[in-house]
Design a protein around this nucleic acid. Structure first.
Lengths: 128, 128
DNA sequence: GAATACATTGACGTTAACGTCAATAACAAT
DNA sequence: ATTGTTATTGACGTTAACGTCAATGTATTC
């Protein structure tokens, strides 16, 4: 079975980033695409990893954190000690994310209150 | 009535940051504390703004974005055109935050699935 | 009044995350 | 054969967000 492949500029334009950034991410260990000759070639999994990386960026994580995150998904799931380690790391991450969720919720609540306030004032003014 | 005041190093240690960072934020327009002689003095509102700024940082916003955010809270609520502008800006921000919330939820879901997977495997292994 | 503690401004250094060339190679189309 | 497109590596530049001195000032304590 032939799986779909992408060139670097295809991926870049699809995901709204530059080729430079993709190569940089590879430099930082987030990606390891195959090569055809000297050219990079990305498969479906590479693309998925890139998407995950971008999501991490949108959430404010550094490339180092994103790398750690991605590594969680490619450990050997058979060796017990590695599993123990992975489990605590995953739990750490989820805790961090839950704290972030609280921050987000608080910020949203305040903004929504401000929005209502704005609308009230505008309605008052427009009555005259 | 006397309101409580803080020195820069008090604020820094309370909020877990350096004095350098606080001065830097002032440089970027996030804060404008009063002075007693040459020394900076922070009131309750300054402190609240700093806390908001730190929350913004935890959510991955740049100091520029945080500044814009803080400015939403100190506009003149009486002038209609300013209100119109503020309202759309607030709505933009809340939309952005809602998208971020989706990203966060997705990430959390995947991690929680991974967590369950880990626990299953560990339980299997420990049965023997 | 000398030392200690905490403040100031100013300048330079640093790290992350790319942007921006430049030189070179492979390949396709004219 | 040359022009154009897309790729490569390498080097240097840039911005944000501080860190790290250094030189100086003021207030308190011994």
């Amino acid at each position: 079975m032939q799986t779909k492949l992408w060139t670097i500029s295809e991926l870049a334009s699809e995901l709204g980033m530059t080729t430079r950034a993709i190569r940089f991410y590879e430099d930082k260990g987030l990606l390891t695409p195959q090569r055809v000759g000297v050219n990079r070639v990305y498969n479906y999994q590479d693309r998925a990893r890139l998407k995950l990386a971008l999501r991490g960026k949108r959430l404010g994580f550094s490339l180092g954190e994103i790398r750690e995150f991605l590594e969680l998904y490619q450990l050997d799931m058979t060796k017990v000690p590695q599993m123990q380690f992975l489990l605590t790391r995953v739990q750490d991450k989820t805790n961090q994310l839950r704290r972030q969720q609280e921050d987000l919720a608080a910020m949203l609540q305040e903004l929504e209150a401000l929005e209502v306030e704005c609308q009230d004032i505008l309605r008052q003014q427009l009555k005259h």
